[in-house]
Amino acid sequence: MEATVDRTGTEGKTWGGGNQPLRVSYGKLMMWFFILSDALTFSGFLAAYGFARYKFSNTWPIADEVFNHFPFMHGVDAPMYYVALMTFILIFSSVTMVLAVDAGHQMKKSKVTLYLLLTIIGGLIFLGSQAWEWKNFIQGTYGAIETKGGNVLQVVNSEGEQVALGDFVVAVPKERVMHERSNGLWFVDEPTLPNYTMDDVMAGFIANPELQIRTQQLTETGEKVILPRAASLAKLQNEGIGVIEGANLKKNEYGNPLFADFFFFITGFHGFHVLTGVLINIIIFFNVLIGTYERRGNYEMVEKVGLYWHFVDLVWVFVFTFFYLV
């Protein structure tokens, strides 16, 4: 049977068919387009973060004060050291990935294996670091007082350093017990009660005359406004309604709850990408081990997964800048 051939008049031209105008394989091209769409998703999140930040530009929390923990350095103020370390870890795992791709071009199976393994380990360390960062953020450091208007008041000493609620508040024995499903109506319960009541905080604040209140408001030079002692007392008495310890999606001891929401959502979505990246890397790692790509004659799969892994690194570079630096 004779095949019918349509003449289109574009034979031999770039888009005439039968060639690859972009000179990449189908898989790599689709990975690039997936990355493009994913990049736009992340841009949407970061732009929304920018919107919230511009909207609350005179009350936004200061990132240096929120993320100032470092492992084994308890109580030491270490702003950004830990995220900088996380950034290095992720960039380094990107380097080992690109080395694996490079070794794949030269069909060196043992080198690809080693570098992929290092990449997986780097990804796992990053994920662990992020979990630790989340833990610190959720637990909180100092605790704060919630106001009627939904704002947050923090306690500082005469040097302007933040003081933890636990350092000056003595919890008095109280009748109020957390209501659980087991001791009442089975379908009714309530959130965990804070360690201190508003009355405990008030008593502790009055007993320590050097304490002052710091509001969410930022000055022209980007510092939080600290109220004089008398105004502090009045503010606590008139507006304080409860105690916040740590951060969740509704309340945040560091300031605006939107800060916590965006932190959980953006770093969480990025962490999910890292997790899937690690899982895909592990699959590819075992494929390399059993010689799938050696038989196939090329290591292009490592290259495609590498593109995804570098993209995860690329997103982190932006998250690092806009969440921690700017």
Binding site: R53, F56, N58
Partner: peptide
Amino acid sequence: YLLFILLTEGDYVH
């Protein structure tokens, strides 16, 4: 484009 719109709007709402 997105940044221009959202940041301008955020500043206005502020």
